[in-house]
Design a protein around this nucleic acid. Structure first.
Lengths: 221, 221, 221, 221
DNA sequence: GATGAATGAGCTTTCATTCAT
DNA sequence: GATGAATGAAAGCTCATTCAT
């Protein structure tokens, strides 16, 4: 996470840095991203990066975090759900908000991919380790809460569900984003619906609940 | 694909090169992998790599291909399935063989990840493009065949299914492999069962078929 | 042309870099020149070259440009000549200044040769293209001006004259430089005189003007 | 010059090697030429090059020599000229034959350029030194003979004339070849005429002879 | 508080040449 | 007589990071 100094910068400069970094990391991955290009795009000095951030990883994590918050993935109203129905209703909102964000922010997909590219030895400690622990931890708590409410299958431990959820979301987002511009409003709505159904398919307790949760798309359109 | 010269090498040396490359690509991704480290580990000269392979991408593709064949993912008996039941029976074998391979070959997971990290502009042409076309094409044909048999949902186009299948498999494998050594035989068998069920959940037509396909694990153990 | 940073360097370091580059390019041509040798001779780090210059071509162009200016070939008073006599008087000064420079700066000949060795596909764009366009353009404008004044033959198009002028100048310079140290003052003066006559021979309109322009050397010595 | 073995090869293989080398050296210069590409184009083995030739320089010299002979530049009928008129008549034939060869053999220009690109330290000894000595020596003897006959100016020593002759020829050939395909038969003839005139301009004793030697193009066409 | 000059290790790739067979 | 496997040095270039100012 950035040194405290970073947050004292005027908003515009912060924004320029984050956007330039997002663009570069999204396009080139973590290793492939060039600090030189980022500072050139952001119009800041070389030294500034190391004045505001610990290192490249820290800049990446900060960037990813900004986007995560924008996507709404840091808010965990889901954790307040009182029963299975409320849980999935919240999940629906969370996922839809995320996907909607994805469609407006193509970089988000790339940032996700960049994330999984970080050398495994960095996952354990440093800024990256901390961020990962936090993000996966939140998702884990959400899914655990779902299990407690009987809204989420419990035949797999939480960390397995976390991995699978991330894999499903990333691959679906990637494909969805590639199609996005060719879809009309109805098609886009249908896409969200299918995306949510995929989560139902994978995470509902099985099979009764899954079956019950099924509402053909035609009913809604 | 490697220059013909490579296959004339004595098996041991071929093996050393492929293993060193697999290790490096698996741990650091495509971009992050260092040819220097690979040749050091394989005990060959720098020039040798370029004597046997077109370039870094070619070495990667060759390595990935060796592992793909070992994993049995190049064989497509599934395409011969005559009905939905046969299709899923074959899929079961294919996936189980793949997962079993994963458990013995931890690098396989990393190679898969390295794969999905390759810059998108390389997907189109060169050795990488050819390999990707071949691999995704095979998976696509399998899923399309499944759709034709009514064994696979058809509310999403084949290329979406391909993406999702890869994402699901990779994330599940990653988690499964992390647990593998702590499981007893029964646990491992259960893991495979759950993995297959995940595919059922995501890819079966919905919901009747999915429901029918459900056989609680307890029945078997 | 060098990044702005280069000109902020203290003069001594700039000088060391340019001289080392001139030496290397002059001796080995553009392709044959080794950045490693240049930095070793200049006593700078590898990164520094790329901090100051875009790439090898940029370093070469910058070096050539420094020498071109030193040789006085960037000034085009010739273009202001009002008649044929003035044109050739200016040409005389320009060429003599250039040759005098050559004698003091042996590297200049080599730089010229390096120049004509640059792969033709680089002539079009990049730092090299810009420099070439500028240099050949100037020479072309001078010769075209000469044609307009009736001071230069017009049975060949300007670009042919440019090529031939460069070829003549380079070959004559090369030979002249090799002899230079063995000549006494009178011999050197005679050399310049002959060099200029060669230009008269090749570029004057033919044959009346050429004949008129002839003043035996004996008249002057 | 090639080891004796080379000439024992069947003509076709010799031809393939020479043509591949000419193509490569012409296109990329001496340093820039790649033996790998040459053997690939010629369809011979890597070792063969070193079996038939001393080294890269030897291959180049051999190639250049073949082309030189084809261009007719090795025959020195000029040396047998009995008077100034005969000398220039022979020169006319020699040059025209050379230029005609150039037009049919674009590689010839490139080979000439490649020649001047060879690092200066190679000019002194080895295969290159020998070839250079031979070629420049022949041209020198021709010009010296011309001087003896009073057909060539003698205010410059022979080696200066040699340099200038080469520079003039190369630059004119380069330009002429670039235009060649756009010229009709009359234009091509005119080009040869002008080229020869250039030699008259530069090499005739001055000025009486030059003036006498002048025959306006219009007279002939 | 903020800069940007400077670095050296590292990158992928190409090369001419050697030599055991 | 002829091959082609194998090499190590060198190429141009980019990099994240440091630190004096």
């Amino acid at each position: 996470m950035p040194l405290a100094r970073f947050h004292k910068l005027d908003a515009d400069k912060q924004h320029r840095i984050i956007e330039a970094a997002a663009e570069e990391f999204s396009a080139n991955g973590f290793e492939g991203a060039s600090l030189n290009r980022i500072i050139a795009a952001a119009g800041i000095s070389k030294g500034a990066v190391y004045y505001y951030f610990e290192d490249k990883a820290d800049l990446f994590v900060t960037t990813a975090d900004v986007y995560t918050r924008r996507a709404g993935f840091d808010r965990s109203v889901v954790l307040g759900a009182a029963d299975a129905d409320a849980f999935w209703a919240h999940m629906h909102d969370l996922l839809e908000e995320g996907w909607r964000f994805t469609c407006d922010n193509p970089l988000w997909v790339g940032l996700g991919r960049a994330f999984s590219q970080i050398p495994r030895e960095m996952w354990a400690d440093g800024p990256i380790g901390a961020y990962i622990t936090e993000q996966l931890g939140l998702l884990g708590r959400i899914l655990a809460h779902g299990q407690r409410l009987g809204a989420v299958r419990d035949d797999l431990p939480v960390d397995a569900l976390v991995q699978v959820a991330m894999g499903l979301n990333e691959s679906f987002e990637r494909w969805m984003f590639a199609q996005w511009d060719d879809l009309d409003a109805a098609g886009q709505k249908r896409m969200f619906r299918i995306g949510l159904e995929n989560f139902h398919r994978l995470f509902l307790p099985f099979p009764r609940d899954l079956f019950d949760a099924w509402h053909p798309l035609e009913d809604e359109s």
